Computed example of a mutant assay.
Amino acid sequence: MDEYFDSILSAISHSLSFVLLATEKYQLTVGDVLIVPVYVIVSFIIIRWVAGFIARRLTAHKVKPDIIHLVKRLFYIVAIIVVVLTTLTMLNIPLTAFAFVSGAVAIGVGFGAQNIINNFISGWILMWERPIRINDFLEIDKVAKGKVESINTRSTRIRRVDGVHMLIPNSKLLENTVVNWTLVDNRIRTSVKVGVAYGSDVKLVAALIEQAVKQQPHVLSEPLPVVIFDDFGDNSLVFEVYFWVSATMERDLRVIRSEVRFNIDSLFNDNNVVIAFPQRDVHVDGTIQLSRDK
């Protein structure tokens, strides 16, 4: 029985050592070809598990999402380079064999994939310098507004305020003007304007507007709200109040401004302050006589 198993093992070993490709210094056997796919698959499973473990540990320590994203990207690149080099070593393929091929590929890439390389490098700049981070609220070209969900090597995914996802090339975020509403913090200044009828007590109006703003819980107490008597309008006395809020989305700002307007309307009604509306006064000269044609 032992001799039978020994003969089987010997046959397997002989089969695995069969040379498929040989040169003066290197040779490729069946065993090399079979073990490489298993090694690559197991390696990528381990890499994904380790990357997930690192992300969970950093999340548990309350590390910012963009830092976690950058660490995972760096880990993936280093791990993949190690797997590729190890695979080439297992196959007995020297790195010098790729010198000419890599030079030709570099020339082809330089002419045919300039935009891809530009976006790739821009993506790493965004992740390293962090002018734009995950969960930041951006305004691009004064048209698109949205929250950053992920920064990838080629493009950045943004969810607009209307729920639509946008994929923006990374180079565009570096080469064009981008307004980052939350670059330093989430504090944003906004304002609400209202016009009251002529003859209103302007001191009372200013006090009521300030009270309406302070009643809104999302308005920050520091800096204090500022009420401005803005103008003597054609049909109203115009007031505008400036205040700071903590918000990360345009929708939040609109909701907060709406609540402030509700408060203003309620306080004005309680204090008999009239919100003005467009009107025209027509004065008829009494000296004009209307004659009837005979």
Rank of each mutant, 00 (worst) to 15 (best):
V194T: 08
N269T: 09
A55N: 08
N235I: 06
I121D: 01
V284L: 15
G31T: 09
V40E: 09
T153I: 15
A207M: 09
L58I: 06
P94H: 05
T287Q: 13
F5E: 14
E222S: 13
V260H: 04
Y198V: 08
K294N: 15
H61G: 06
V148P: 02
R261L: 15
M1C: 08
E250L: 14
T156Y: 07
V109M: 12
S43D: 10
K203P: 00
K147F: 00
L74C: 14
Q289N: 12
N135W: 01
I140W: 11
T29Q: 07
G199H: 06
Y26A: 05
V71Q: 01
N271L: 03
T89G: 10
T190C: 05
K62R: 13
G52F: 14
I93E: 05
V245T: 13
L58A: 03
S291Y: 12
W128F: 14
K193E: 08
F232D: 05
G146C: 11
W49I: 11
W128Y: 09
M127N: 03
K193G: 12
V84A: 12
V40L: 12
I275M: 11
A79P: 02
F75P: 06
S150D: 10
T190V: 06
A197K: 13
K214A: 01
N263M: 05
S155M: 15
T59K: 15
F243W: 04
V19S: 08
L126I: 10
V194K: 09
V238P: 04
S171G: 03
G286E: 15
Y242N: 15
S171M: 09
I151D: 04
F53W: 11
I228E: 13
H14F: 10
R292S: 13
T96P: 01
A79F: 08
V33H: 07
I45N: 05
A55V: 14
N176W: 01
I132P: 00
M90R: 00
L91V: 05
I256S: 03
T287M: 11
D270E: 15
L70R: 03
D32E: 14
T23W: 13
S191N: 13
D281E: 12
E210Q: 03
I35S: 13
T96V: 08
V255H: 08
N272H: 14
I121E: 00
R159E: 05
W124V: 15
V196I: 10
N263D: 02
D230Y: 10
R292F: 13
A106H: 02
I256K: 02
I80E: 09
I80M: 09
A11W: 12
F18M: 03
V82D: 02
I117G: 00
K25H: 12
P223E: 06
S191C: 06
Y76F: 14
V284S: 02
I188E: 02
E175Q: 07
G103Y: 01
M249Q: 14
S258F: 10
F262R: 11
L20F: 10
L237K: 07
V105G: 04
F111D: 01
I67F: 10
I107M: 06
F111A: 00
N269M: 06
P37A: 06
V196S: 06
I168D: 00
T156S: 10
V282Q: 07
L253E: 12
L20K: 03
S15R: 07
V36H: 01
G31P: 12
S15Y: 14
I151K: 04
